[in-house]
Amino acid sequence: MMKIGIDMMGGDFAPIEAIKGIQQYIQEAAQAAHLVLVGDEAQVNPLLGPLSLRADQYTMVHAPQVIDMHEHPTRALKEKQQSSIAIGFHLLATGKIDAFISAGNTGAMLVGALYSIKALEGVLRPTIAAIIPKENGATGLLLDVGLNSDCKPEHLNQFAVMGSVYAQNILGIENPRVALLNIGEEEGKGNILAQATYPLLKENTHIQFVGNAEGRDLLLDKADVMVCDGFTGNIILKLSESLFEITKSKNIRHDYLDRFDFENYGGTPVLGVSKPVIIGHGISKAKAFANKIRLAEKMIAKDVMQKLAAELVA
């Protein structure tokens, strides 16, 4: 049985929303994974009582320390080795769990992913991706969205391969179309990075490259996977989040706009490391936690990391 580790102390609403998310997941799962709850027993155990979880459904692992949101990631992981994030990564690295999810300190999660479980062979840089809801009801993927602010053409070329594998296995897109995010459709457009990346993507036989995509194409169905540097991708991601918040605050309701709610997707996977690591938003509530668990479950079941490794080596 697969084992999924959950940082119970990560996020603005920990541990109560994590508990609610677990309850939601257990109630809706046909066959639930075994959950390994990592956190302060004094805070978590009293909240577990009303859930009536069976002993075979979860394991509690005590972690007396918490890495706060604004702590320096590397220093915090080194100094707080009894924190929920540090212990979670130790469990992942030693094979005690198959995936690890957290809505805690993003930097600490990224540092943990890079240094505790290592990158896959051949990966120049791991990446994080975001779901892009398309206007026609389809779903796209944008990467990188913040892990790599500065990139080389070779990095974007690998992001295209990793994004394609993820789109095939998690989004169910059989032959994903890949585009380079750019300021014009024509080959030769863009900054130095875009100009140097285009020929690499064009020659890459592991992807279906369809050329450049402009900002106005992002929400249309021009491509399934769009690649860019993390600086650009993060600005797009944060803009999308703010537009969703504005529409919500002004009580503007539409099925399409609802698809921009991050809670629907749970979290962002780190692609290019050897085991599934899911990073959630700090303001994650129950729905997001439940969806993070489901995403981790799907990544384990589909063997996404091994498929990424095979594709990159090939």
Rank of each mutant, 00 (worst) to 15 (best):
M2I: 11
I4H: 11
I6F: 06
M9T: 06
M9P: 03
G11C: 01
P15N: 04
I19R: 09
G21S: 10
Q23P: 09
Q23F: 14
Q23W: 12
Y25N: 11
I26C: 12
Q27N: 15
Q27G: 14
L35T: 03
D40F: 04
N45F: 13
L47W: 12
G49C: 13
S52W: 13
S52Q: 15
R54L: 03
R54S: 09
Q57Y: 04
Y58S: 14
T59Y: 12
M60K: 05
V61E: 10
A63L: 10
A63M: 05
V66S: 01
I67R: 11
I67G: 01
H70Y: 15
H72R: 02
T74V: 07
T74M: 00
A76G: 03
I85E: 00
L92I: 04
A93C: 05
G95L: 06
K96T: 01
F100G: 07
I101V: 14
S102C: 07
S102T: 04
N105K: 03
A108E: 06
V111H: 01
A113S: 00
L114Q: 04
S116P: 10
G122V: 03
V123S: 02
T127V: 08
I132M: 15
K134H: 14
N136M: 14
N136L: 14
G140V: 07
L143N: 00
C151A: 14
E154V: 10
N157G: 08
A160G: 07
R177N: 05
V178Y: 00
A179W: 00
L180Y: 09
L181W: 05
I183E: 06
G184F: 07
E185K: 02
E187R: 02
P199F: 09
L201N: 08
N204V: 08
F209Q: 06
V210Y: 09
G211V: 03
E214P: 13
G215F: 14
L220F: 08
V227P: 10
C228I: 09
D229L: 00
I235T: 12
L237R: 14
E241G: 07
L243S: 12
L243R: 01
F244H: 12
F244D: 09
E245H: 02
K248Q: 13
S249P: 03
K250L: 13
H254S: 15
Y256G: 15
L257M: 13
R259H: 08
D261P: 05
E263D: 15
Y265S: 13
G266A: 02
G266D: 04
V270N: 08
L271K: 01
P276I: 01
V277P: 02
I278S: 08
G280E: 12
I283H: 14
S284P: 02
S284A: 12
K285R: 15
A290E: 07
I293D: 14
L295Y: 14
A296V: 11
K298M: 12
M299R: 03
M299F: 00
M299W: 02
K302V: 13
K302Y: 06
Q306H: 01
A310R: 01
L312E: 04
A314L: 11
